[in-house]
Design a protein around this nucleic acid. Structure first.
Length: 366
DNA sequence: AACACGGGGGT
DNA sequence: ACCCCAGTGTT
């Protein structure tokens, strides 16, 4: 196996599946499908046009929504030729309500291509299928499996979730390396017979049992050797999409202690921490002395405390707290400024990072 | 309100 | 080759 090390590492030993004693992954899925999977779906046929239409409709749309549209669409356009010869308006009208209208435009274009290039016969060569607009590798594999019995793996969102959990594959499945590793695994697991049942089983297991949240592991046919289940990672797999980098800002907050009283400033109602009592902020710890002087206080001592991070939805704030002992007349309390003792500060409306700071030993001098 | 989704399109 | 999007349902 010529895989890069980090990929191989993320895939536990599934390569020996074919030699193990207990039923293989695919065998268990197929048995499960016969008892618990979906049956009698209207597109369960080997008519490639029917299979194709259903696969396109099922992209980003659930089975129960698709069924009535599928039947109406086929009644209106019973063959690839009738679809190819229809006008765009008719096709779009038949799709109306399903959403993602690019799918309908691609379907229509593909029908015309099949007429022009394949004499109106849906191609059975997977490369030619994949060359049609709106059909990628996974959809092509599903069509070739259902319509022609070809043993090819699919890899849609449901399958990615099942494989990530069962094999314990970490990393965001949208990442190309991770996706490539999943295709390799999917290839390995494909059975040599009953590909139709197996393909449907993967779809059904993903949507009925191995769901995004609250998977029903108690009824899962592959729970026994599921890595996520064994290691308590069903909720953290598949690895979620990395949050896009949020900007980091920095600020210095002054803990102005005058005796055992801490100076807090009430923020305006609008904006961040609106209406909460907060520490005065300066640009750097070097500004502490000037800040005190400007507010009629003498700075007796300063202690720089360890910086820490607070994460908002849209940015990350690095807070450098500086504890200051001050003397002098001090600020006269008013609407905006108040002196709090430690206990009353914690009882006041203060933001979470200040609460963290005040419950930390170091921040509370004296 | 944020996330998920298969394929296409743009850089 | 890589990143991001469209457009809608789910959590």
């Amino acid at each position: 196996m010529n895989m890069k090390r980090n990929q191989a590492d993320s895939i536990p030993d599934v390569y020996c599946m074919s030699t193990q004693q207990s039923p293989t992954f695919s065998t268990r899925l197929i048995e499960w499908q016969h008892v618990h999977g979906r049956h009698g779906l209207p597109w369960h046929s080997s008519n490639p046009y029917h299979v194709w239409l259903s696969e396109i409709m099922l992209q980003q749309t659930q089975v129960n929504t698709v069924i009535p549209y599928y039947q109406a669409f086929l009644a209106k356009f019973p063959t690839i030729l009738t679809l190819a010869e229809a006008g765009s308006d008719e096709v779009m009208a038949a799709w109306s309500g399903l959403g993602y209208y690019t799918r309908a435009r691609n379907l229509h274009r593909a029908a015309q291509l099949i007429v022009a290039q394949h004499q109106g016969q849906f191609p059975d060569d997977v490369e030619q299928v994949m060359a049609l607009p709106g059909i990628g590798r996974s959809t092509a594999a599903a069509i070739c499996a259902f319509a022609f019995g070809q043993c090819r793996p699919i890899l849609d969102g449901n399958v990615k979730r099942v494989l990530a959990r069962w094999a314990g594959i970490t990393g965001f499945p949208g990442d190309k390396k991770v996706e490539a590793a999943m295709w390799v695994l999917a290839e390995q697991l494909v059975p040599q017979a009953d590909i139709e049942t197996y393909t449907q089983a993967q779809m059904d297991l993903g949507s009925l049992v191995c769901t995004r949240s609250k998977p029903r592991c108690d009824v899962c046919p592959v729970a026994a050797d599921c890595v996520a289940r064994q290691t308590g990672r069903t909720t953290s797999l598949p690895t979620p999409k990395p949050r896009k980098a949020i900007p980091t800002r920095a600020t210095t907050m002054l803990l102005i202690w005058r005796g055992d009283k801490l100076l807090l400033q009430k923020r305006p109602d609008r904006g961040i921490w609106g209406g909460l009592w907060c520490l005065p902020e300066v640009d750097t710890s070097l500004d502490a002395e000037a800040w005190c002087a400007r507010h009629g206080m003498a700075l007796e001592s300063t202690t720089c405390l360890p910086a820490f991070e607070h994460v908002f939805t849209h940015f990350r704030l690095t807070i450098s707290p500086v504890a200051c002992e001050v003397s002098g007349p001090g600020l006269t309390p008013d609407e905006q400024w108040q002196w709090f003792d430690h206990k009353s500060a914690l009882a006041a409306g203060i933001p979470q990072p200040l609460r963290r700071l005040l419950t930390n030993r170091q921040a509370v001098l004296l």
